[in-house]
Nucleic acid binder design. Structure first.
Length: 614
RNA sequence: UGGGGCGUGGCCAAGCGGUAAGGCACGAGACUUUGGAUCUCGCACUCGGAGGUUCGAAUCCUCCCGCCCCAGCCA
């Protein structure tokens, strides 16, 4: 955890935390229990990170806990692959920050049924890592509550608040009415309790095919809030479930399962996104209709995160994966936690980002630049510096003997003296970056060109004496230069200054590497807003991935650890790809570029040129 | 046109009746063996609009305008 995180946690203030603080002060709840309840039907993305940071952040700040729960009430869309990735991603994101607040439960345990103050109750408390001992823990599952949920449904029927409805899906749809027009009551609405009980039991026993009957809440078909027009509570689905197997053929709907799951786990604050705001009356109705003995959870809503140059809906991310637009859920261009991790984004940087974007109720579109800023800020302080040449151009130091090797001490991290130094070999033939040489330098370009003197990072000043061109294409294939060995570290003896410092790698000592450069997945800020008749995939950035082979990196990079970021000086932050990098054949992912003043100048000049031409 | 929300600088976002925080982005400069980092300065006479209440309004009231969400046996 960073010190800014400690500090910010104390000051952090948003409308939800304000409510929590008030609830605590007024004694409306004794402990703060939140939950993060994803449906295991896809991978987690930055939008989820916002929710995770909010829920765990609150638990952390107020000494409570946050349960990880699979909201798995729809067997047809969910899969264990997703519960595993979700669990891993959550643990990765909160590691070293809020893992002590992570509420899990002993593997295999389901809710305890019982009585409390004479009322039917069901409860399943969390186990925190500190109290786990040897017990194997796992996330909570809404599907673990299918039995108590079924009991709650029976109770609703007994109370005359729910009934079995035989209308077809089409009829139900048609009878629901429209937002400005009331619906019509089901023909089965006044079925006697006993008949409802019998039918519902037989639904569970598998006597009826899918879609033939539902259990519905008896509320108000003329409510202006359509979610109160006798919403479906249970549907029949003869499908096996990733967690409960074939034990059930009726499955509860979100609205019925969610609030009651919150209740079972003793959640105090149930935080979700804005689109559930209209469901809140139903959330409350269900809990209140049961006269439950313990305090009821309360639902609060905040605006979900939108990020420029990407899409966030699971449906669209799934399409990118299924259509092969990306390499998978963990493709480094994806806004998924798995993708960002593979790309090299530190969890702490993502948390910092989530903190900076704030929590409010207004719709928002956060610039990707903020996320990148957080990543750079984090990495600048800790990533070791290394030299790497991405697009090698041969340079010969004419006055440096063929057989000689010099070693310079290079600082590992100027931001962290404790990181020490390392030796880097220097010899007659070097690789420099193609970008660092121009035969004809444009205005404001102050790197190398014929006749110009520049600093070789950590080494001597050199002066370009000429070039060797490809006779066929005219392309520069070699740069000739002489070095001035009087110009060691520190200022030059004669006080002469040079405009540029360029990086280099000794050709005789360099390692070959593959480097993957990433740009935004989408070419436009709002891929969700494409023109009529076009698809969001039309906005995909054709240059989102550039693979460079034959890059030259300094010897110290031989033992770079997968997933651990380094800075390639003057270029950006990179980390060995966790999936494809091999000891003798490293593959680096570019996490993010360094801020680049020259690139900005070039871009501006380019833009000016276009404007003139137009 | 029913209901539920939301409108503060390019993007986020504080502000809770006392005279517009902060961050990102952007611009200028200093420093610099990363055109990196760091540092300094600049960047809303104004809070969707119009009225009203008040000594005083982004904050309270009224009306208007705009945007988002809701009619899955998805979550």
């Amino acid at each position: 955890m960073t010190s800014s995180e400690t500090q910010a946690a104390a000051e952090r203030q948003d409308f939800i935390r304000e409510i929590v603080r008030e609830d605590l002060k007024a004694g409306r709840c004794r402990e703060v229990v939140t939950r993060f309840p994803p449906e295991p039907n896809g991978y987690l993305h930055v939008g989820h990170a916002k929710s995770i940071c909010l829920n765990f952040g609150i638990a952390r700040q107020f000494g409570g806990r946050c349960n990880l729960r699979m909201d798995d009430t729809n067997p047809t869309k969910e899969d264990v692959e997703y519960v595993e990735s979700i669990t891993g991603d959550v643990k990765w994101l909160i590691a070293g920050w809020a893992d002590h607040c992570l509420g899990l439960k002993p593997a295999g345990r389901t809710a305890e049924r019982g009585e409390r103050d004479g009322a039917r109750d069901s409860h399943l408390g969390a186990v925190l890592p500190a109290e786990a001992g040897d017990a194997r823990l796992e996330p909570f599952y809404a599907s673990d509550y299918f039995e108590p949920l079924y009991e709650f449904a029976l109770e609703l029927i007994r109370r005359g608040r729910a009934y079995v409805c035989d209308h077809t899906p089409g009829e139900v749809d048609e009878m629901r009415g429209a937002p400005e027009r009331p619906g019509r009551e089901s023909l089965y609405r006044d079925r006697p309790v006993e008949e409802n009980l019998d039918l519902f039991r037989r639904m569970r026993d598998g006597e009826f095919p899918d879609g033939t009957r539902t259990l519905r809440a008896k509320i108000d078909m003329s409510s202006p809030n359509v979610w109160l027009r006798d919403p479906v509570l249970y549907r029949i689905r003869h499908a096996s479930h990733h967690h409960t197997g074939d034990r059930w053929c009726i499955y509860p709907m979100y609205d019925f399962a969610h609030g009651l799951s919150d209740y079972v786990e003793g959640i105090s604050h149930s935080i979700c996104t804005l689109e559930f705001e209209v469901h809140r009356p139903l959330y409350d109705w269900i809990l209140q209709a049961l006269d439950l003995p313990r305090p009821l959870p309360r639902q609060y809503e905040f605006a979900r995160l939108n990020l420029t140059h990407t899409v966030m809906s699971k449906r669209r991310l799934l399409r990118l994966v299924q259509e092969g637009r990306v390499g998978g859920w963990d493709d480094p261009r994806m806004p998924t936690l798995a993708g960002m991790r593979r790309r090299g984004f530190p969890a702490a940087a993502i948390r910092d980002f989530c903190e900076r974007i704030g929590v409010a109720k207004r719709e928002n579109l956060v610039e990707l630049a903020l996320l990148e800023h957080c990543v750079r800020e984090h990495l600048n302080r800790r990533a070791p510096r290394r030299m790497a040449v991405l697009r090698p151009l041969r340079m010969v130091i004419e006055n440096f003997p063929e057989d000689r090797v010099e070693r310079f001490e290079a600082v590992n991290n100027p931001e962290d003296p404790a990181a020490g130094t390392r030796p880097i070999p220097f010899s007659r033939v070097l690789w420099i970056e193609k970008d660092d040489f121009r035969e004809v330098p444009p205005p404001r370009y102050h790197r190398l060109s014929p006749g110009v003197e520049a600093r070789l990072r950590y080494a001597w000043l050199i002066r370009c004496t000429g070039v060797v061109n490809d006779p066929a294409t005219g392309e520069v294939v070699e740069v000739r230069a002489t070095c001035d060995p009087e110009t060691g570290s520190g200022p030059t003896p004669d006080g002469r200054k040079v405009k540029a410092t360029i990086h280099w790698v000794s050709a005789a000592h360099a390692l070959d590497a593959e480097v993957r450069l990433y740009d935004t997945l989408f070419a436009v800020e709002k891929p969700d807003e494409v023109a009529e008749g076009r698809d969001f995939t039309d906005a995909l950035n054709p240059r989102s991935l550039e693979v460079l082979k034959g890059c030259k990196v300094e010897p110290a990079l031989a033992d770079a650890e997968p997933g651990v970021p380094v800075q390639f000086e003057r270029l950006g932050y990179f980390c060995p790809d966790a999936a494809d990098s091999r000891p003798g054949a490293p593959v680096f992912n570019r996490t993010v570029t360094l801020k680049d003043a020259w690139a900005r100048i070039e871009k501006r000049q380019g833009a000016a040129g276009t404007a003139r031409d137009a």
